[in-house]
Structure formats: C-alpha cells, structure tokens
Design a binder for these strands. Sequence first.
DNA 1: ATATAAGGTGTATTATTTACACTAAGTAAT
DNA 2: ATTACTTAGTGTAAATAATACACCTTATAT
Lengths: 229, 229
Amino acid sequence: MKEVLPKFNSTFSIDCVVFGFDEGELKILLIERNEEPFKDWWALPGNIVEENESLDQSASRILNELTGLTNIYMEQYYTFGDVNRHPQGRVVSIAYYALLRLGGDKALKPLSTYAKQAHWINVKELPKLAFDHQQIFEKGLEKIKRRIKHQPIAFELLPEKFTLTQLQNVYEVILSKKLDKRNFRKKMLSFGVLKDLEEKQQGVSFRAATLYKFDRRKYAKLFGKEISF
Amino acid sequence: MKEVLPKFNSTFSIDCVVFGFDEGELKILLIERNEEPFKDWWALPGNIVEENESLDQSASRILNELTGLTNIYMEQYYTFGDVNRHPQGRVVSIAYYALLRLGGDKALKPLSTYAKQAHWINVKELPKLAFDHQQIFEKGLEKIKRRIKHQPIAFELLPEKFTLTQLQNVYEVILSKKLDKRNFRKKMLSFGVLKDLEEKQQGVSFRAATLYKFDRRKYAKLFGKEISF
DNA sequence: ATATAAGGTGTATTATTTACACTAAGTAAT
DNA sequence: ATTACTTAGTGTAAATAATACACCTTATAT
C-alpha cells in the first residue's frame, strides 16, 4: 500500500442528479451552497466519498442525508475528471442519477446541513450551476432519455399506484414530445407488466381513472427480451 | 485546496478493455503482470491517472504506451469503486473500452514496459483475471453489445475499406448470433452511410467482394434520428 | 474444363408502428 | 335533475419494418 499509492493529492466525490416527478413536471433537487468555492451558487447535491464506503453506498448516503429516504433507485452513469474541474485540487466526480416519487402525501422537504437551502427545480428553469454541474446534469438527462426506452425506470418516478395518463406524462416530459394516447396505452398494456388494480383514483374532480401498478415479477420473466417502451 | 481535500489516501486508475477484431474473432488485449499484487496474473491494461491529465487523456496515454497507436476510439463506460477491490489501498478505477482494427498489414504487436508480455486473446478463451477485471471486462462487453445497435462503432473494428461480409462478422461475433445475409445487407445499405468504393478485395482465393467505406458525413447528417443497426 | 468457395440478389409473409376522432363516465354548478 | 365540463377510454386501416427463405454468379485453383 505504501510505495504505489497515491502519487499525488487527490480525492473523489459523488454528484447526484436527483429527478422527481410531480404533477406533470420533471424536477431536480438543487442546493444553494454555503461554502467556498462557489458560495451562494446553486449546485447538484454531492459529497466526498468516505474511506470505508463503496461508490454506491456513498451515493445512497448522500441522498439519504438530503431527503431522509432510503432505497431510492440510483444508477451511476459517468465520471467527470477534467484536471481543473474543481478549483481546490484534483477531484474526480462520479455522477449518479436518482429517480423518486414526489408529490402527493409525503411532500418531500429536502433538508440539508451543508447548504443554505435545497429546492426542487423544474429542469426547464434551472439557474446557473457551480463547477461543471451543468454538464453533469445534461449528461444525466440524456442518459435517462435513452434508458427510459429500454428499462422500466418510469415507474420509479410514480407512486405505487398510478394511472396510464400519469405514466404517459412521465414519458412525454422526459422525451420532450407528445405521444398518442391510444398507441401509448396499447403498447404499454401489450407488454403485460402492468397490473390492473380494479380500483379508481380518489379525490379528483371529473372522471376517475383506473389505477395500475408495475408488476416486477412479470417484468423479470421477460428478461433477456429487449423491450422497447 | 488545503483543508478540504483529500480526506484519506486514495488514488484513481484507468483500466481498458481493448477490443480488436481479426479474421472473424473478437479479441482483447491482456497483459501478464510483472509486479505484486497479482504478479504473474493476466490483467486488463491499466495505470494510475497522473496529476496533470484528464481521464480521457490518461486512457489515451495508456493505450498509446501499449500499442504505439494514437487516435484510437475509446469510451468511458463505468467506474468501479468497491472498498476492497485493490489489496493495496483505495483505488477507484474508471473503465474504458477501446476499439481498433487488428490484422492485415500492420500486425499490431503490443509492447509493454510494465508487463512481462501482452497478448491478444479471444474473448471466448479468457484466463482468470486479476483484481475485479473479470467484472470490468463483462460490463465492457455488455456495453458494446448495446451500443453497436445504435451507434456506428462496428467500423472502428474494421480497416478503412471492408466488405459487407466482414461487417456482418463483426455484428455476429459481438452479438453472439448468426444474422441473415440478405437481410443484413439490405438493412445496412438502406441507411445510406456506406459508400461503394467500386473496388474489389485483393489477394483472396475465390471471388473477391466489393469494398465499402463508412461515410461519416452522411452519418452525421442523419443525426438526431435514432438508428437501429 | 471443372470443382470449389464465397459473393450477391428478391419476394412474400408477418409483425410493428403510426395516424386518427368519437363516446363514456364522473363532477360541479345551476 | 339538467347541463356543462373535463378527462377516461376505445378500434381500425395504412404504412413501415422485420423476417424467412434458395439460387445463380464470379473468381480462383487444380
């Protein structure tokens, strides 16, 4: 361990693009920094990786500290390592995106010790971001655009029980385009991974829609087959 | 730079899965280690990132040291950071895959100062690998399997001028399945990104095939459109 | 000349994707 | 209870893409 590592002062951090979906809007969690560098700037939540935690563990911890939630769906997607990306030294940052259900009952209030404030901000109205976080965000958004076509990640952004219209909204906002209602439903239902709960939405004005849930078992059975949502 | 970074002894490395294609076989470049840990084991080529180079630069350098080649197609695809993946300390490794043309005239002989030897080994006949390199390799292979369907990476494995049969071989060996000759040709040509060179193979026994090249300009014009090779 | 080995070609069938508009059902206001 | 309003929910025809499938051509080697 001695002579080989490390060759110079360096460290690694995790940065998270935390996507949340609420009433038709795609948002991410941003913090307002309370420390130099980039004091008072908006930034992606992130932190230094600790000695005794893997990258995935670190990402979970950071997200838990920020939201109080555990078991959030996360995926590592790229590592940013330009020499001067951090003004205080060599910091290589491993980027994760996370997907979670906002809205409804639990009204997720982000809490943060290391930031002035944390807010959910619509991806279409982002402020300037610290460091290379704009780039990290853009690559993250690109990733989920690709991945939503082949993997069932849309469901992570919705409550357990959801309507087909809500599901369609997720696809529309992530792909930034309108989809045809009939074709969308036909295709989604044709995979056989949505379970009709024979239950209706509650507390909406106007006609209530049928609730569905994502059937992970049936989806697991399909595996191997390339699905194209 | 002082008080924040770093919190503990750590370093980052690059590991490369270097794919080469030669006479119908998909191979990767492995080195036999000359130093502890894992002395005498086969391993993916890799090295420590230097202070003044970005990750991409580091990956290029490592590959250049090994092959003498520059301008090789490379992509970062995943970062491995389990706490104990390296027995000598905390080493986070950023994995790249590279694709290059073997065979024919230049008969690429890998040279290596930091290894006993380096060889091109068929991906179906890999030995046990050092560290977590088996995992790194598998994820790399998975990546190119996915990517070859949407991006024109197959051409990186072929010489400038190639036949349709050679191209089909690349797809077959990466996807591990036979494809129909007529359907493959029809589809490939339908994208309009292959230029018929009106020239035949030289020096083959039996009938010579027409040579094509990949037309990057025409491909660039298609962009935005999702292609499915 | 002949045998050999790979090159090169077309069509019919099936599956998938797209385009498109109205009726049904529940709520809210009068 | 009637009406107006808003979203839920449904089917078919046309176009496009994917698949299955077999023979003749051409250059080389003997």
